[in-house]
Amino acid sequence: MSGAFPTHAALGRQPYWDWRAASNFMLGGSGAGVLVYAAVCGERVLGLLGAALIGAGLLCVWFEIGRPWRALNAYRHSATSWMSREATVAPLLFASALGAAWLDSPALRWLAAALAIAYVYCQARMLNAGRGIPAWRNPRSVPLLVASGLAEGAGLGVLAGGFWGLMAPPLWPMVLLTALLSARALAFWSYRRALPKMAVPGRALRELSRFGRVSGAVDVLAIAVAILATADPRIAPLVAASAVIAAGSGWILKYSLVIRWSYEQPYAVPVTVARGGQVAPGTRPEG
């Protein structure tokens, strides 16, 4: 019965969004986090890095869409589409980040930070609206993506500050990073707890479970290192390690969410028809 296109109900990962789409979530979230970190730290130039990361993420998506020269059509449906809303926030964010760096204006920095939070929230809701993917439509993916973006941004902010010598990491940026890492770990724990209600296919659950075990250990390590670095921010390797883990583990998390755990909603029938017209229990092929 099977032809070129399968007639069985097995489904796999969604085939449309690849590393380019994942990059938008990774770079966009991190960029938004950097902008927030720049506002909190009163850093003039760092916001440009955040805007550049967001721009790079959008560029990745531009290379993925089927009709890139129509990209401006993405502004047409902000009434309901979180992708439209993301696209709407982006230019405002770029303008305010550029203005903040140009004029060294704290007000514009905070405006850019507010828009960055709106941007990462739009991204989180965008993924959550992908209702064909049970791992995405888990409502707790929203706080997870927001917390991860802010933690990644803080990590990159700490790294960039140390690398450029723009800012010796004082105590409280490390406290901020520690808090955000803890928030992300909590959000991921909460996300995983809600998964059984989402009819997530078994393969995704098993992968998530394996990832969760490693990620739990990494989170504990990252938080422990960050606390140690908080105790003495002058110990550069500790600061750098916590910052790298904050950004790197967030990217791995998002890549996994967008690509690896993106198993499609299985077909399901609540009843089947047995021989002779009798009704029999239904089926939900795992895929």
Binding site: W17, E64, P68, R70, N73, A74, M83, A129, G130
Partner: peptide
């Protein structure tokens, strides 16, 4: 349509 395939994931 811009071919973003967002509808396909939804």
């Amino acid at each position: 349509c811009i071919g973003c395939a967002y509808c396909a994931t939804a």
